[in-house]
């Protein structure tokens, strides 16, 4: 089941998050909804990201693919170059560079879509709270039996109200 708890203060939210984690919940069980980004210190609600690795991987992949393709194409249709080499990194370096960058752009974008969960299948049962300009909603996923404990933790931390959603 899910608990939806509304907060008005970031400090209260931090207290709640630390207490919930102490009670055995993982960051995967927790989600905060807000109209603007909220930044926490390290260790409160970490969301490890592999986006920069993905960007580098995408860059290397498309850059290499483009360069190999140019190499293949130049040899596939071999023109008489009058002294110039058939394939030269110098003469096609721009293409390697631009395609490397394009690879990074695409990788970042798709990784963003994936990591943010926008293109992943969502749990249809998980409720999405309505958020207003001034509020932050914390969604907690927990077993039905322990719900009371968590509601108590949330209240102690200073939430405005808590709803239970089956």
């Amino acid at each position: 089941m899910f608990l939806i708890s509304e907060f008005r203060s970031k400090d209260a939210l931090v207290v709640a998050l630390l207490a919930l984690k102490k009670a055995g919940l993982t960051p995967n069980d927790l989600a905060i909804f807000s109209e603007e980004p909220i930044e926490f210190r390290k260790g409160i609600l970490d969301r490890p990201s592999h986006m920069s690795k993905a960007a580098v991987a995408g860059a290397v992949c498309l850059g290499t693919a483009a360069t190999s393709f140019v190499y293949y194409a130049q040899h596939n249709y071999e023109i008489v170059t009058g002294g110039m080499p058939i394939f030269s990194f110098w003469a096609t370096g721009i293409i390697t560079y631009e395609m490397t960058m394009l690879g990074a752009i695409f990788a970042t974008f798709f990784w963003f879509l994936w990591e943010s969960g926008l293109i992943r299948k969502r749990d249809p049962a998980a409720p999405v709270p309505n958020i207003g300009p001034a509020s932050m909603s914390l969604r907690v996923r927990c077993e039905t039996g322990r719900a009371d404990t968590f509601v108590e933790i949330l209240r102690a931390a200073g939430c405005i109200k808590t709803e239970r959603v089956k």
């Binding site: 905060i32 807000s34 969301r47 986006m51 920069s52 990074a104 970042t108 943010s116 969960g117």
Partner: peptide, 25 residues
């Protein structure tokens, strides 16, 4: 909006993507 809900996961990914894209662009 691609079904944006405003979860911290989304915000986090967005800020990360903006930072990376700024460097690339």
């Amino acid at each position: 909006s691609l079904g944006w809900t405003g979860s911290d996961r989304e915000w986090h990914a967005l800020e990360m993507a903006m930072k990376l894209n700024a460097v690339i662009i």
